[in-house]
Nucleic acid binder design. Structure first.
Lengths: 148, 148
DNA sequence: ACAATATGATACAATTATAGTATCATATTG
DNA sequence: CAATATGATACTATAATTGTATCATATTGT
């Protein structure tokens, strides 16, 4: 059971790597060397991120990718949605209708509560918070604030 | 992306159904009628729950299943582990070794924190808490206590 | 112009997980 | 010993995940 699939993971790593170079453009080849991700797979991922307008791309010599959005505005959950679809911890449905069993379906309610918490936390994780230690602490505080 | 797969879901429903009958034995056929789960699939699930010693089984006429463990001692996470393996929200590894990228791998740390929270909450959900409204409230309080 | 370089679009393939089915063996009860 | 119910086990179908590969297109330097 995985919350995060490999393409999301790769995408996050690539975004981090690109974010660290700031303005500068970085090519697939350089990313492959830094991240050790299969080239074709990474290319596909970068193309998707570009289509989704998280990255800018440029063709030709010295072409490559750069962030289209500042790193504090890219959340983990956004990347997850792109590669894994919407976040639903449990469908808990039966044949397309809501679960008709178990009084008021308490299981679903409980799972939904957990889901809300998880989403809140995933929203608090940004590319910036992953690459910068200082910001991490600020961010953790924010998480604590949200939990109040 | 699902936290809970269908066989876990079915298993939980079956356990709830059996728990509600308490001491009495209930057969696969009766469960199928109550829960509307494909018979063969449910049989497999019940066999697994029996092997895992969450259920007792008896063969022959009037045979069937009953709880081997009291419903407040069966946690959701236990059932998930049986049907979905251990709970790991992200492997975040690369080629069998830990992720060597991104300083100290902050992403992994952050995911691990979320994972801990989720596991804590899943541990707090028991079969009893799903079938009994009163216990649910007690249980929610316990969850809040744990979060302090 | 044109060759080199780099991304864009797209189609295909392998592996694994999920979801479900089916059959024969075995134990229990009347 | 027949009816009934689970036990063991093998098989299948579908979908998701994890890639691979190829040709088209745009850009840049000579």
């Amino acid at each position: 059971m995985k919350l995060i699939t490999r393409n999301t993971d790769y995408a996050v790593r690539a975004l981090c790597c690109i974010a660290e170079k700031k303005e500068k453009i970085i090519s697939t080849d350089r990313l492959v060397k830094s991240l050790d991700i299969p080239r074709s797979f990474l290319r596909k991922i970068l193309q998707i991120l570009t289509k989704e307008e998280l990255l800018h791309s440029s063709k030709g010599k010295d072409g490559g990718f750069s962030l289209a959005v500042s790193p504090e505005k890219i959340t983990l959950i956004e990347v997850m949605k792109i590669f894994q679809g919407s976040i639903r911890l449990s469908e808990h449905k039966f044949k397309k209708s809501d679960c008709p069993h178990i009084k008021n379906c308490l299981l679903k309610k409980k799972i939904d509560e957990i889901e809300k918490e998880v989403i809140k936390k995933l929203k608090a994780i940004t590319i910036l918070s992953i690459i910068k230690k200082k910001e991490v602490k600020v961010n953790d505080q924010e998480v604590r604030d949200l939990q109040m």
